[in-house]
Amino acid sequence: MDDAEIVALYWQRSEAAIAETEAKYGAYCRAIAWQLLCSREDTEECVDDAWLAAWNAMPDKRPAHLSPFLGRITRNLALNRLDKRHSLRRGGGVLPLCLEELSGCIPGGSSPEEALEARELAERLRRFVDQLPKAERRVFLGRYFYFLSLEEIAARLGYHPGKVKSMLYRSRQKLLRCLQEEGFV
């Protein structure tokens, strides 16, 4: 079933929407949740929460592509879970490593304008990622959106792990310069 048909099921409030979503995107969302949570029970709960969030979002939302839509929901729900467990820096998987790698890029301090800054940062990060060369963007998103290990990214894209490491290093340097120029860090 294509995405438009599945979205139509949500709009029609048909329970088949969840079944079709599970069939088409269950493995994808579980993979995203697992990379962060590293617990079968937490992963299943997170994915169930993602289906509920999708059910509540449609209508009146109508995403053209369900993969990024569900991916974002699942990723953020998993991050929320880790945050609640105070496990962002102590959890399993590659997340602690990713945070360490990105630590130089994270704006410090807190301010009354934090919410506005977060929105502006999100927009800037999106533009940054969009401007990366395709190969570099795939590696960057594999690491910092999907939280795959260097070896996994290398295996999936047919690279040597060393090449993945150096591509990520270059991307982070570019990101840091970009955020410095715009005053975020």
Binding site: K24, Y28, R89, Y144
Partner: peptide, 26 residues
């Protein structure tokens, strides 16, 4: 850190392309 990670996003096209290239699609 949580806020930064959540802000780290990309356009649908970029995410779709990365997911397919990485074999993360259905």
């Amino acid at each position: 850190s949580l806020q930064f990670l959540k802000a780290l996003d990309a356009d649908d096209r970029a995410l779709l392309d990365a997911a397919r290239a990485l074999g993360l699609t259905e």
